[in-house]
Design a protein around this nucleic acid. Structure first.
Lengths: 192, 192
DNA sequence: GGCCGGAGTGTACGGACGTACGCATCGTTG
DNA sequence: CAACGATGCGTACGTCCGTACACTCCGGCC
C-alpha cells in the first residue's frame, strides 16, 4: 500500500470522477465506480467526500472550470478585426467537432441542476460567467445573455440531432444578434 | 381485485409515470414508484412495458406531445398583425410562469437523450417539430432553427437561474432573429 | 524507544432496484 | 357444465448502492 499521507489524493479522486462522468454520465456516478477508476479503496472516496453529492459537485465544478477556461481562451485569442459572429460560429464548430464529450457533460451539468438543488447554483454560475465573458465584446448585458442562450441552444441541437454543423448558417444567426460587428465593441479603446 | 381485462390500464400507467417524472425527475423513475402512483400491482408495470426504458420512453413521448401541442396551439392562435417576436416572448413568459414543471421535464427529456440512445431520436424529433411549427411563420429553415435554439437557451436560463423574466429584453432578442416582422411571412397569402 | 492520536481503509449492513417466473383468474369453447 | 388457454399478478432473487464504523497504521511527542 504505502498510500498513507498521499497528498493530492482528493484531487485524484475528483479527476477520476470526471472520467466516470464522461463515460457513464451522472446516473452512472457511484462511489464504487470512482474508487475503481482512481484505483483507491472504496472507503477513501467516502472519507474525502462527505456524500456522493459532494463528490458530484466537486467533479462538476471541474468540468465547469474546464468549459469556462475554454471560452476564456477563445475570447482572449479574438483578433480585433474579425467579426464576432464568425468567431462564435467557429467556437461552436470546434466544440462539437473536438470536444463533444465535454459539451455533452456540460449540458448534463445543466440538467442535473434542474433537479438537484445543490447543483443549481453551479449551473447558474456557469451561465452568468459565460455571459460575463461575452459581455466584454458586446455593448450590453441583454445581448450577451441572448448570445449565451443561442449558443446553448445551438450546441444542444447539434449534439442531440447529430446533424452536421453548417457554420455559415450559425454565423448568420449570431450576426443578427450582434448589433454592429468587428469583434464586438470593447468598452474602452484598448481596455478590451 | 376485479381488475381483469382493464382497458386503458397501460395508459393509466403511462400517465402515472408522467406524474412520477414531474415530481422526482428521470432519476426517480422506477417500476415501484410508478406502480404505487398508478395504484396497480408492481407486476402490472413490468407486464405492460417490456423494460424500464420502454416505460420511460412512453412517458417522455407523452410529455413531448403535450409540449408540442402547446406550441401548436400558440401558433394557431397568432394574430396576423402582431409581430412574431412579441408573441414568442409571451410564449416564453407564460411557459416559465405557468408551466415550469413541464418545461423542466421537457429539458430533462433532452438530458436523457444525451446518454440514452433510445431517447435521443425522440429529443431530435422534438427539436425538428418545433422548428417545423416556427417555419410556418418564418421565411427559411435556418431562421426557424435559430429561433428554436434561442427559445431553448432562454428557457433554460430562466429555469436554471430562477431570474425573473424580462419580457421586453426577450422580445428584442427574438426580433433580431426574425428578418422582417408582422407575425412572420406565411409562404402563401392564405396558405397558413 | 515507546505510546498516542488522527488519518485512512476494509467490511458489512440495510435498502432499493429490475426482472423472471410460477400461479391465480376469467372468458371462451366444446 | 367442465376444461383449457391466455391474460395479468405477487413474490422472490440477485445485484448494486450509500454509508457507518471498527480497525490498522504511521508520524510526532514525551
Amino acid at each position: 500500500m504505502a498510500r498513507r499521507h498521499d497528498p493530492g489524493r482528493r484531487q485524484r479522486i475528483t479527476d477520476a470522477a470526471v472520467r466516470v462522468l464522461m463515460e457513464r454520465g451522472i446516473a452512472g456516478l457511484s462511489h464504487r465506480a470512482v474508487a475503481a477508476e482512481a484505483d483507491v479503496p472504496l472507503g477513501s472516496t467516502t472519507y474525502h467526500f462527505s456524500s456522493l453529492d459532494d463528490l458530484l459537485l466537486a467533479a462538476l465544478r471541474e468540468v465547469n472550470d474546464a468549459w469556462l477556461t475554454r471560452l476564456e481562451r477563445w475570447e482572449a485569442a479574438l483578433r480585433p478585426g474579425r467579426p464576432l459572429a464568425g468567431e462564435l460560429a467557429r467556437f461552436v464548430e470546434e466544440s462539437v467537432r473536438d470536444e463533444r464529450p465535454r459539451v455533452e457533460l456540460e449540458y448534463e451539468l445543466y440538467f442535473a441542476g434542474l433537479r438537484r438543488p445543490a447543483v443549481r447554483p453551479l449551473a447558474a454560475f456557469c451561465l452568468d460567467e459565460m455571459a460575463g465573458v461575452l459581455r466584454r465584446r458586446v455593448p450590453d448585458d441583454a445581448t450577451a445573455r441572448a448570445l449565451v442562450a443561442l449558443l446553448d441552444g445551438l450546441l444542444l441541437q447539434l449534439v442531440l440531432t447529430g446533424r452536421e454543423c453548417d457554420r455559415e448558417q450559425i454565423r448568420e444567426a449570431f450576426a443578427r444578434l450582434v448589433p454592429q460587428d468587428g469583434t464586438g465593441s470593447p468598452p474602452g479603446p484598448a481596455a478590451g
